[in-house]
Design a protein around this nucleic acid. Structure first.
Length: 269
DNA sequence: CCCGGAACCTGAAGGC
DNA sequence: TGCCTTCAGGTTCCGG
C-alpha cells in the first residue's frame, strides 16, 4: 500500500519524465476515478496545460499546472502510476497523455484511487499534520503532540492530521523498532519511549525510501519494477513469522479496525 | 471532540 | 475443482 516512501518514490521517478511537458489529452477507461469536477470538465481543464511542478504532501501527489490548476492524485490502497507508452496495463482507470509521447497510466484494481482538481494546495495541506522527514518535525514537537491523546498510539500514527504519510505498514514497523505495544495509549508513553518512537518513525521511512518503497500488494515503481522495502520488514504482514530478535511469534491483532502486526514478547504493554 | 462503523471496491484466500 | 463468504485497507462520512 502506498505510504510516504512509496508516494515519494513515485514522485521522484515520474518527475523527470513529466516536468515541463504539456498534457495533450486524457483517457478515462473508468471515469469514476475522477471525483471533481465532472469528467468532461476535468479533461477540458487540464488538456493543453503545462506541468510546472510535482509535489508530495503526505500520501497526496499534487501537480502544479499552468492556469492555476492543481491536479491531485491519491493512490489509496492499490493505485500505481506507470510511465511509458504501451497498451493499457490491466486495471488502468485513467491515462494522462503528454506531448512527448509518454503517458501516465493510473492503475488501480480496487478503484479507491482519486483524481481531482483543486484551486489551491492549501486544501490538501490543511488536512495534514507535519511531514515526518522534514526539519520542522522535531522530537520536541512530536512529544508535545502526543500529549492529551487517549487513543492507542497505533491509531494516532495512522491519523494523517497527527502525522502525514505514515500508513499501516510503517506504523507497525516503527512501533516494533521502538519496542512499543501498539495498543498503549499515546499519552502513556514516557519521554524516552516517545523519543525512541520518533527516531524509529524517521528510520523506517528513510529505509523504505532508500529501498524505493514496499511492493506488498499492488504498488510498483513508475517503470513497472518492484520496490524492495518489504524485504526488510520485521513485522508488517509477517503473520506467523518469527521475531528476528527474540524468536517469538509475530501476532496479528485489530487496533481500531486496522490489522496490526507486532511481537508480543518485544512490545509489552 | 472522540469513537465506532459503514461505505467505497475487487482480488485473494479460506471454508466446505 | 469450485462456489460462496470473508477480508484487506486510506479516507470520508454518519451517528452515538
Amino acid at each position: 500500500m502506498p505510504e510516504l516512501p512509496e508516494v515519494e518514490t513515485v514522485k521522484n521517478e515520474i518527475a523527470p519524465h513529466i516536468i515541463g511537458r504539456i498534457v495533450s489529452g486524457v483517457t478515462l477507461p473508468w471515469a469514476g476515478i475522477v471525483r471533481d469536477p465532472a469528467p468532461e470538465e476535468f479533461i477540458k481543464r487540464i488538456t493543453g496545460k503545462k506541468i510546472q511542478a510535482l509535489d508530495r504532501y503526505g500520501k497526496y501527489l499534487v501537480f502544479t499546472l499552468t492556469g492555476a490548476e492543481f491536479l491531485v492524485i491519491h493512490l489509496k490502497m492499490t493505485g500505481a502510476l506507470i510511465i511509458g507508452n504501451f497498451e493499457l496495463p490491466k486495471h488502468t482507470r485513467a491515462v494522462i497523455h503528454l506531448d512527448n509521447d509518454q503517458n501516465i497510466y493510473f492503475r488501480d484494481p480496487r478503484k479507491f484511487g482519486v483524481l481531482k482538481l483543486i484551486k489551491d494546495p492549501v486544501e490538501i495541506k490543511n488536512k495534514l499534520g507535519p511531514e515526518p522527514l522534514s526539519d520542522e518535525f522535531t522530537p520536541a514537537i512530536f512529544v508535545s503532540r502526543l500529549k492529551g491523546h487517549k487513543a492507542p498510539i497505533k491509531a494516532l500514527l495512522l491519523d494523517q492530521k497527527f502525522l502525514a504519510g505514515v500508513g499501516n505498514m510503517y506504523a507497525d514497523e516503527a512501533l516494533y523498532a521502538a519496542r512499543i505495544h501498539p495498543e498503549k495509549t499515546a499519552d502513556s508513553l514516557t519521554k524516552t519511549e516517545s523519543k525512541k518512537l520518533y527516531d524509529a518513525i524517521r528510520l523506517v521511512l528513510q529505509k523504505g525510501l532508500a529501498a524505493k518503497g514496499a511492493s506488498i500488494v499492488n504498488y510498483m515503481r513508475p517503470d513497472g519494477s518492484a520496490g524492495t522495502a518489504h524485504l526488510q520488514f520485521k513485522v508488517a504482514h509477517a503473520l506467523n513469522k518469527t521475531c528476528g530478535d527474540c524468536g517469538g511469534e509475530v501476532k496479528r491483532i485489530v487496533v481500531r479496525g486496522r490489522g496490526t502486526y507486532y511481537c508480543p514478547a518485544c512490545q509489552k504493554k
